[in-house]
Amino acid sequence: MTVGDGGTLLDIDHVHVFVADCDAARQWYTRILGLAPVPELEFWAREGGPLALSNPARTVTLALFEQAESTHCATVALRVSGADFLAWQRGLVAEPDLAVRRADHAVSWSLYFADPDGNRFEITTYDHAAVAEAVDDN
């Protein structure tokens, strides 16, 4: 028996992300990842709590916690289709001052980058063959 035997985990509700400036981070996450504040949760940020940002479907939610210095080190991996991976690659590499690293993991492809506060992100796809055909390593 495990603690989790009491019920089934449904999904990841949100990921805590620590940032130096919540307003600047909100703008970055909106511009780069297309995430927007969750209207019904904005009161938390007004009361000194986290700012919840999500995609329109509410399948990806980040809780931004403003903290001057952070020693937290984690990577948030976001799964996409092969076609969307290629679109993300085009968009991310076009961003000035955003260092993007692409990796071929034999069964998946990943794009790695970080936000201005050093929080690491990964865009990943398991549509390996489709991306391998389209990738130009020259």
Rank of each mutant, 00 (worst) to 15 (best):
A77V: 08
V15S: 08
T59E: 07
T61V: 10
R31I: 09
L10I: 09
F43G: 13
T124C: 12
D5P: 09
S54L: 04
T59Y: 05
L33V: 02
P96Q: 07
S81C: 11
A134L: 01
I123V: 06
L53V: 04
D104C: 10
N119C: 06
L92G: 00
G34Q: 03
E66K: 06
A74K: 15
A130K: 04
A99G: 12
H72P: 14
L9D: 07
E40M: 14
A24K: 00
Q89K: 10
V135P: 00
Y29A: 04
A103V: 14
R46L: 11
R101A: 15
R79I: 11
G49N: 04
E133F: 08
W109R: 03
L9Q: 10
A94Q: 06
F18K: 05
A129I: 07
A36P: 01
L64A: 05
P39D: 07
Y112R: 09
A68V: 10
G7V: 10
F113S: 03
C73A: 15
L86I: 02
A103D: 14
H105L: 13
Q27E: 14
G49T: 04
E122T: 09
L86K: 01
L53Q: 01
A132I: 14
G6D: 07
R46V: 09
R101N: 14
T71S: 15
G4T: 14
G49R: 05
A99S: 12
G82H: 04
L78W: 04
W88D: 00
T8A: 13
L62S: 06
H128Y: 09
F18E: 05
Y126T: 12
